[in-house]
């Protein structure tokens, strides 16, 4: 669906260099801290910024050759941008109806009612949650094949986040060919949604793993100095000094459970994996 190879973009104080791929029918997560390069990646995919190297292709087509017609199949949410705040939901409906060939007006109106979005109030007067829901609604209302969602849940409370993720799940259920690239700095969103996850840090992809594998095979070993010395470190990805000794990140939990029954092994969750990948030292 989407393939990025060695994409490069240099700014004065930041440079992006990443490769990633989104397969048909999959939800792929992109996780990283603020300023890690998530939004830059999205803008490059959408051709909003010029790049300094690498290739991006969507549906097998180089984005430099992407036409207005090709963009019909994309649904987009950007974290810091949306429809003009001076417009209302009622204003947006005919605009979308005329821009998208397969805009599903009745679905859109139905969802607007379901989420109780005011139809004749200016968007700039909407709450953060309302704005976020409208953005996602716009993205999923025209039968897109690929959704590109940059921080769609940023700033939302738990309930609004849940509703939003539910909208995305329903979108995926309707057609098995659909795919989503979703970024977030909130790991629990991605843990429940994504088939695979890319972790980005300082403009580089530092980890790519299937979510299942991440949750089942990754673990934190908590060892004291003595245990650490005797530890087989071939499956240790990162380690970090703690006051009790060391905590070590592994992607082979079972190996250490079998061979070191005495050490404390904590099941990995995304937050811990991220923290260790970023803060921990390589061996």
């Amino acid at each position: 669906m989407l393939k990025i190879e060695n994409l490069r973009k240099n700014y004065e104080d930041f440079s992006l260099d990443c490769s990633l791929e989104i397969r048909k029918g999959c939800v792929t997560g992109l996780i990283g801290q603020n300023g890690a390069g998530k939004s830059t990646t999205f803008k490059a995919i959408l051709g909003l910024i010029a790049t300094d190297g690498g290739t991006i292709s969507i549906f097998g087509k180089d984005i430099r050759k992407f036409t207005a017609r090709d963009k019909q199949d994309l649904g987009v949410v950007l974290s810091d941008s949306g429809f003009s705040g001076y417009l209302t939901v009622n204003d947006v409906i005919p605009v979308l109806d005329n821009l998208y060939e397969s805009f599903d007006k009745s679905f859109f109106v139905e969802q607007v009612q379901k989420f109780q979005l005011p139809r004749s109030k200016k968007i700039k007067e909407f709450s953060t949650g309302m704005k976020a829901k409208l953005k996602v609604l716009v993205a999923i209302s025209h039968n897109a094949k690929l959704l590109l969602l940059d921080e769609p849940t940023a700033g939302l409370d738990v309930i609004a986040r849940d509703e939003l993720l539910e909208m995305l799940r329903e979108f995926m259920e309707k057609d098995e060919e659909r795919s989503i690239l979703i970024s977030s700095h909130i790991s629990s969103d991605l843990e429940t949604m994504c088939d695979d996850i890319y972790m980005i840090h300082e403009g580089k992809i530092i980890l790519h793993e299937d979510t299942d594998v991440l949750l089942s095979d990754y673990a934190l070993l908590k060892v004291d100095a003595e245990q650490y010395e005797g530890l087989d470190r071939q499956y240790i990805l990162r380690s970090k000094k703690e006051n009790y000794g060391y905590s070590c990140l592994t992607d082979q939990k079972q190996y250490y459970m079998d061979n070191y029954p005495k050490i404390a092994i904590e099941k990995g969750n995304l937050d811990e994996v991220i923290t260790m990948m970023i803060r921990g030292g390589r061996l």
């Binding site: 803008k43 963009k71 994309l74 950007l78 941008s81 949306g82 705040g85 821009l99 700039k124």
Partner: peptide, 12 residues
């Protein structure tokens, strides 16, 4: 206004 162009230019 409000960086609206980024989203606008992602439309078809």
């Amino acid at each position: 206004f409000d960086n609206g162009n980024a989203f606008l230019f992602s439309l078809p």
